[in-house]
Structure formats: C-alpha cells, structure tokens
Simulated scan of single mutants.
Amino acid sequence: MASIFTKIINREIPAHIVAEDENYLAFLDIMPLVKGHVLVVPKQEVDYIFDLAPDALAGLHLFAQKVAKAMDKTIKCTRIGVAVIGLEVPHVHIHLVPLRTMDDINFTRPKLKLSSEELAEIAEMIKKGF
C-alpha cells in the first residue's frame, strides 16, 4: 500500500509543494511545529533513511539543502533545523523547521492548525527563495 507521501508525489492527494525535481519533493507539513515547517522526501518509497542507496541519501540531503537555503531567504528565523525521526510515516522524510528557539523543534508539543490559505501563502513565499 502506498504511503501518504507517495500519494502526494503521485498527486493523488493535494499538498503545498515548494520544490521538486526528478527524484525528490518538498512540501509543507500540514500539521507543522512552526510556520514554514517543510518535509523533504525521495520519490522512491523507502521506509528507513539508512536503507536508501548512498547516492539517493546524498541526493536527498543536497536537495534538502537547496530547500533550506530558500527557506533562509524568505522566513524570519535564526536558522533551519533538521530532524529525521522516521516513525510517523513509513516513507523517508526530512523535517526542515524554521528555528527561533530550541523548543521550535520539540515534536512533543502541540502542532499548529493552519488554514489552506495560510499554507498556500507560506509555500509561495518559500518558492520565491529559489
């Protein structure tokens, strides 16, 4: 069964996509820790990040770097935090989280509930950073 991320990749369900190439996709987390929280995924459906082939793992991080630099240009924050947890969805994903404090990347705190309009505005803002 395809993961929710594969369904996003295949455009079976909507997402606020901020970047894409032939191997990777970046989109806003719909239940973010902070505004601008982005998920970066490989288009190849693999559950565990360390099961990716070395070139795919490297490519994922290089793609995430491009996205983080675009976020740096467009989101007010001290820096972009990076987390890989891998328990929520059985599909490799990197969290890119705009940080102002250490608590901004605390996954145990309540998530934000943003409207589709707010998410669309944030996605457009990040796209302008490329």
Score class of each variant (00 low, 15 high):
Ile105Gly: 12
Leu28His: 02
His37Trp: 13
Pro110Gln: 03
Glu124Ile: 05
Thr108Pro: 00
Lys69Tyr: 08
Glu124Thr: 12
Ala15Tyr: 06
Gly81Phe: 09
Lys76Cys: 13
Ile30Trp: 04
Asp72Met: 13
Val34Ser: 02
Asp72Phe: 01
Lys35Trp: 13
Ala83Ser: 09
Asp29Val: 10
Leu114Gln: 04
Ala26Gln: 03
Arg109Val: 12
His95Asp: 02
Leu62Phe: 09
Cys77Asn: 06
Ala120Tyr: 05
Gln44Cys: 00
Gly59Phe: 13
Gly129Glu: 05
Lys127Tyr: 01
Tyr24Asn: 12
Glu88Asn: 00
Ala58Thr: 11
Gly81His: 04
Val41Tyr: 10
Arg11Leu: 10
Val97Trp: 12
Ser116Trp: 11
Gly59Pro: 02
Leu112Met: 14
Leu57Ile: 05
Leu96Tyr: 07
Thr6Leu: 15
Gly81Leu: 03
Lys35Gln: 15
Glu22Arg: 07
Arg79Glu: 13
Asn10Met: 12
Phe130Glu: 06
His37Cys: 05
Phe63Val: 13
Asp51Glu: 15
Ile4Glu: 07
Glu20Arg: 00
Ala26Ser: 06
Ile17Tyr: 02
Ile4Asp: 00
Gly36Pro: 10
Glu121Ile: 10
Thr101Ser: 11
Phe50Asp: 15
Val92Lys: 04
Thr78Met: 13
Phe130Gln: 03
Val84Ala: 07
Gln44Val: 11
Asn23Leu: 14
Glu88Ser: 03
Lys73Ala: 03
Pro54Gly: 06
Leu62Ala: 12
Ala56Trp: 03
Leu114Asp: 08
Ser115Arg: 02
Arg109Ser: 12
Lys7Leu: 14
Met1Gln: 11
Pro98Thr: 03
Leu57Trp: 11
Ala123Tyr: 09
Leu114Ala: 05
Gly36His: 01
Glu12Asp: 13
Gly81Pro: 10
